[in-house]
């Protein structure tokens, strides 16, 4: 479902050394995979994930999403795929502060082409165990709860693939475990999942672990 080859991205800034954040990465993700990406801080995990999530563009290499070359898509086509085919979960949650949990979860629905969206936000909030807190703003929720709202938002359009960039990075271990359990549950219900972490405990839940160091993919490690 995802196929990238020789993907590279370099950050160039005036009066600074270029940063080769992603270098010649080639990888394939099959439908239903649960993949963990691990690596030290600054190794290029987020850069790769943002490209996979169509939030950023590579300098070179090819990226095929569901068999279609991403570099040939218009920005509106990219927006539509982000809306209905990909759910993205950020380390910093990125909830809008002035609106309720439910309204945050409804954001992707605003931009979808679905005709009937009634009850969808409530359903996914129930799925992450937050239905009774749905009228609270993020300031009134704990970190773990905020991340669960963000997961609900990623799920609301029922995408095939979920991308999570260190979703437990800002959480205590107890909340982190809750979040990981949600991802395991989602995987068993058929979702394709790619998750960044530098916690090997969490990575051990995945079927496949990718190690990135200095922007390069080290080796594929299969986990039972």
């Amino acid at each position: 479902m995802i196929s990238i080859s020789n993907l590279s991205k370099t950050y160039k800034k005036e009066n600074a050394q270029p940063v080769f954040a992603v270098q010649n990465i080639t990888l394939h993700i099959e439908r239903g995979d649960f993949t963990a990406i691990v690596g030290p801080s600054g190794s290029g995990k987020s850069t790769l994930m943002n490209i996979l999530g169509l939030l950023d563009v590579p300098d070179s290499g090819s990226y095929q999403f569901e068999g279609k070359e991403v570099s040939l898509m218009t920005i509106d086509e990219l927006a539509d795929i982000r809306n209905s085919n990909i759910g993205f979960v950020f380390q910093q949650f990125h909830l809008l502060p002035k609106i309720s949990a439910k309204e945050n979860v409804e954001l992707p629905l605003i931009y979808s082409n679905r005709t009937n969206i009634g009850g969808m936000a409530e359903n996914v909030l129930a799925q992450v165990g937050l239905k009774e807190r749905m009228h609270h703003t993020s300031a009134e929720l704990s970190g773990g709860q905020q991340q669960r709202v963000a997961i609900a938002r990623a799920l609301v359009n029922d995408p095939d693939i979920l991308l999570a960039d260190e979703p437990t990075g800002n959480l205590d271990s107890e909340s982190g475990t809750e979040i990981i359990n949600i991802f395991k549950q989602l995987h068993s219900s058929g979702k394709t999942i790619i998750l960044i972490t530098h916690d090997m405990n969490i990575a051990s839940h995945a079927q496949k672990i990718l190690k990135i160091v200095d922007g390069k993919l080290l080796n594929h490690t299969a986990v039972s």
Binding site: G53, L55, I75, A79, D80, N83, F88, P108, Y111
Partner: peptide
């Protein structure tokens, strides 16, 4: 800006 980025990340087109 963050709100706009988030809206685009969840699928808002520039036109939206």
């Amino acid at each position: 800006v963050k709100e706009i980025g988030l809206r685009k990340a969840v699928g808002a087109r520039s036109n939206d």
